[in-house]
Design a protein around this nucleic acid. Sequence first.
DNA 1: CCACGTATATTCGTTACCGAATATACGTGG
DNA 2: CCACGTATATTCGGTAACGAATATACGTGG
Lengths: 206, 206
Amino acid sequence: MNSPRKLTHPLALAVLVLLFEKPMHPYEMAATLKQRGKEQSIKLRYGSLYTVIRQLEREGFVEATGTERAGARPERTTYRLTETGEAEMKGWLSALVSEPVKEYRQFEAALSLLPALPPKEAQALLAQRLGRLDEGQRKLQSELAGAAAINLPPLFLIETEYALALLRAERTYVKALIDGIETAELGGMKQWHQWHADRAAARGSH
Amino acid sequence: MNSPRKLTHPLALAVLVLLFEKPMHPYEMAATLKQRGKEQSIKLRYGSLYTVIRQLEREGFVEATGTERAGARPERTTYRLTETGEAEMKGWLSALVSEPVKEYRQFEAALSLLPALPPKEAQALLAQRLGRLDEGQRKLQSELAGAAAINLPPLFLIETEYALALLRAERTYVKALIDGIETAELGGMKQWHQWHADRAAARGSH
DNA sequence: CCACGTATATTCGTTACCGAATATACGTGG
DNA sequence: CCACGTATATTCGGTAACGAATATACGTGG
């Protein structure tokens, strides 16, 4: 259940799931993921795709069923899922669903370093972010609307709904933070101003 | 503002910010980050620390001020921030604050592949996650309480508050998703059950 | 009918990132 | 007083991940 997996790239899990449906060649996997809009939630790079497939093969989770030549296109290798591959897929996906993993978000890093910027600047930059977050929200919503318009069941959109929920939460938080800075209700504002004032003074006197 | 940075690892930004305060040697940077609890929001690995410092030096953002030997400890190299390094720090941090960046969350990938698991199992796994999320929430809250107890100003805890806000949003979403599956209010449940039933049947008939 | 953009399909070289090893000194309990 | 765990401080080697190159065929508008 909690075993350290040999592979870590989520794209490898996507490959296992795709091969669980039916055998495919790598390029078709990529095309399928794109067509279903999954490249929004799973980072898809051709270099990485072929890399993870080689790894999956090395671990015995997938195997080549032979190379074909359809029409006169370049040659291609089709893969299928093995028994252990199916087990790996179920175990890995189950773990990802049931166990939250620690992830390092860039904005979290930025917040933890925010005091390095003067308060006024920080506030203005956060306001800019607010606008960009609204943009992003609109984009996700129109994506959802578009999918609903072609009768795609919500089941296949849950990852987008999740992303939207997180985006909304971030917006709310950023708004509160801006207010906290503006009204100085955020504890530590004095030290923050002071530190930058001292630094400016030190600069001035040489 | 939107320039492609030479360095991308957030730890490099942390180094710039630390050197903005005062010259330091690498190990002291690591110790400082840990002491301030910033390793929660910025991934800190010794291997990466020395790597990014070499890169920062190559780009001219930091420079060695010489190697010292305090007491009889191993030799160490102290670095300081250059002028361009200070500019880089301000530009980079500003960009991170004002511009949301696309990030691929593991759970988003998991949700987009969820239909590969039978609905009942998916629901049970999501319920497990709910419990783990509550645990995580309690941990963050006790961290915040502990920090408040030693009078650390909230300004230095904004990244933790942010993490907590996202965690709460995720909890709410997961709860709603479980309910949607249980009550079959989530659109597409029929196809989901059907696909797995068909598959089981196909297996049975060899 | 042919030039050129796009779709199909994969390989390769580079590097960021990290786990683990290395080396020295300090502290402390037996 | 010495053995062993912990703190100080850095280096090194392996590999996952990827950007970019490669190669072929198809389609289409001029």
